[in-house]
Every structure is written in structure tokens, then in C-alpha cells.
């Protein structure tokens, strides 16, 4: 009973000459939300699929609720809810029909009609799966993961393709799951999602864990430098800004119109930045000095370059 929700030791998975997971260790206590972060191809989905019993490891041990998913799948599956990446349903099946089918596989399922309503699918009950929008398909897939009242759910990019309202609903739902003692392992690309929901964040790159801890611990750990953020018109030449600052400071435009200066931020630095903006004839808006957020930590650890 005291087994961790998920415990992975030295996991290795190769596909031909590619090593997708390379000695990954992870321990997730019961009843918490753990977010697996990492660039595309880091090995997140492969790891989750091994936990779900869809793939077998080449080396290492995986225990889910104390059981081996490759060997004890039949015992494990009724206790675990799964939302595969990109969903999964018959192209022609009606939303309600699909959910009722998955509900039939559980001993004491939630009420499918209620779950469809709360997830905003009440009007799409008789819509064939292939005509649902991407966000609706995701919500149906989430419903299928939860309908059997599982102890543990694996959610692979649960909010991908959802609009902000749906995303917020899902976050609220995940918080309710934790309140009710359901363990949640999710993968995501949204730092905001991980930062606001997860008890623990595990950052994976090249098939191995490169950082883990609570969101606040992770941002504190990597907070020897603070950062200054501001908004202004896009396209300012940040090389000039960096040149105006003392040696060792980094300045960049993180997204169009959104600028960051990283280094030890003191009043002199703030003054230098605002004066430089004044010289450019722009007003620095939403000027903010603070600890770096999870996204900064993530980019620092996994690199800023787009992977090819």
C-alpha cells in the first residue's frame, strides 16, 4: 500500500540506434501531481508509454503502484487512467458512445453524461469524433482517462490544442483530482501549467533527468541571478542594450516586444535600462524585476536553440 505511485530506476529504451530514454530515474509519491517537462524528443512520451505498459524497457525497472506494467498489466489497468498523446477514438464514433464504452470497462464509473457536461461536451454528444475540434477531442480523451475513477492518471500533453477557457477548466479539474487523492503524472510544454499545478517538476533532456524539485525550489535553485523584464515595441537592437550594461549581463527579446535582462539587477541597472529605452524613444512598460520563472530555468537547462 505504501508503494510510490510511480518509481523508475535506470530506465533505458532504444529504438534502433537511437536511445530515447537513457538511464532515467524518477520517484513520484502517491497523491501528488508531477509534471514531466522537456524539449520534443526528450523521452517524455516513451517514458510514459512504458509506465502504461505499451512499451517494454531495454534496461532498468519501472514500478507503477508497486506493480510491473509489462507483467502485471491486467491487474494494473483497471487502477490507472490514460490519456494518450493525440487522444484515440473510432473516427466515426459519437462522443458519448465512446465515453460510455470506456465507462463499461470500469466497475464504478463516473456518470458519463455528467462528465461530458462539465467538460463542455454536452452539445457534442452525438458528434462523430472526427468532426470534433482538436480541443474537444482532447477533452473527450481526458474524460476517457478519468471515467473509471482511477487511482493514478497519466496525461500526455492534456491541454495541447485547447483554448484558454478549456485549459483553465482542466487545471481546475486536476486540482480537484489532487484534493481527492488521485495521483497525476502529466507531460507538458506549458511552463505556466507546471508552475501553477505541479507539486514536483522533472525536467528531462536526452532521455535523462537533468533537474527536479518543486517549482519554487527549481526557480530558487537557479536564481543566483535575477532578471529584469519589460515590454516595448518589438525589434529593439538588444546588442546595443547589452553594450550599455556592465560586462556579464545578457539582454534579449524573448518574444516579440518582450525583453529580458539577466544578471544581478540593482537600481543602477534599472536606471541604465530605462535611460537606454529613453534614448531609443520608447517607453519601457510593465517593467518587472524578479526571480526567473520556470521557463527561464527550463531554457537555461535545455538550451535556447531550436532542435533540429
Amino acid at each position: 500500500m505504501n508503494a510510490a505511485a510511480v518509481e523508475i530506476t535506470g530506465l533505458v529504451k532504444r529504438f534502433g540506434s537511437v536511445t530515447a530514454v537513457d538511464g532515467l530515474d524518477l520517484k513520484m509519491p502517491k497523491g501528488e501531481i508531477l509534471a514531466l517537462l522537456g524539449p520534443n524528443g526528450a523521452g517524455k512520451t516513451t517514458t510514459v508509454e512504458i509506465c502504461e505498459g505499451f512499451r517494454t524497457p531495454d534496461a532498468g525497472t519501472v514500478r507503477v503502484l508497486g506493480l510491473d506494467p509489462a507483467r502485471d498489466g491486467a491487474t494494473l489497468r483497471p487502477r490507472v487512467g490514460v490519456m494518450p498523446q493525440g487522444g484515440g477514438a473510432y473516427p466515426g464514433v459519437h462522443a458519448e458512445e465512446m465515453l460510455r464504452l470506456v465507462a463499461a470497462c470500469a466497475a464504478e464509473p463516473l456518470d458519463p453524461a455528467w462528465l461530458l457536461d462539465v467538460l463542455g461536451l454536452g452539445s457534442a454528444r452525438r458528434t462523430p469524433f472526427k468532426r470534433l475540434s482538436g480541443g474537444q477531442q482532447q477533452r473527450l480523451s481526458l474524460a476517457c482517462a478519468l471515467i473509471g475513477r482511477p487511482e493514478l492518471v497519466f496525461l500526455d500533453e492534456p491541454t495541447a490544442g485547447m483554448d484558454p477557457q478549456a485549459r483553465r477548466l482542466v487545471w481546475e479539474l486536476l486540482a480537484a483530482l489532487r484534493t481527492d487523492g488521485v495521483s497525476v503524472l502529466l507531460t507538458t510544454h506549458l511552463m505556466e501549467e507546471a508552475e501553477s499545478l505541479a507539486d514536483d517538476v522533472v525536467i528531462v533532456d536526452d532521455g535523462t533527468v537533468i533537474a527536479q524539485g518543486s517549482p519554487s525550489a527549481l526557480t530558487a535553485e537557479h536564481a543566483e541571478d535575477a532578471q529584469l523584464r519589460f515590454r516595448a515595441r518589438p525589434g529593439l537592437d538588444t546588442r546595443l542594450l547589452a553594450a550599455a550594461l556592465p560586462e556579464g549581463y545578457v539582454a534579449g527579446e524573448s518574444s516579440p516586444g518582450s525583453y529580458r535582462v539577466i544578471g544581478h539587477v540593482d537600481p543602477q541597472v534599472v536606471s541604465t535600462v530605462t535611460s537606454w529605452c529613453a534614448q531609443q524613444g520608447v517607453l519601457a512598460e510593465e517593467l518587472h524585476v524578479g526571480r526567473r520563472d520556470l521557463e527561464e530555468v527550463f531554457l537555461e537547462l535545455t538550451g535556447r536553440e531550436l532542435r533540429t
Partner: peptide, 16 residues
């Protein structure tokens, strides 16, 4: 307030 009453998702796993 959450739209989900506490206990809504309390696990009750089992095979149909």
C-alpha cells in the same frame, strides 16, 4: 470555489 465537489474523483477503481 471549484465546480467539483470534494470527493467527486475519489478513486474507486475496478474492472467492469
Amino acid at each position: 470555489t471549484s465546480r467539483f465537489a470534494p470527493g467527486t474523483f475519489t478513486p474507486a477503481p475496478g474492472r467492469g
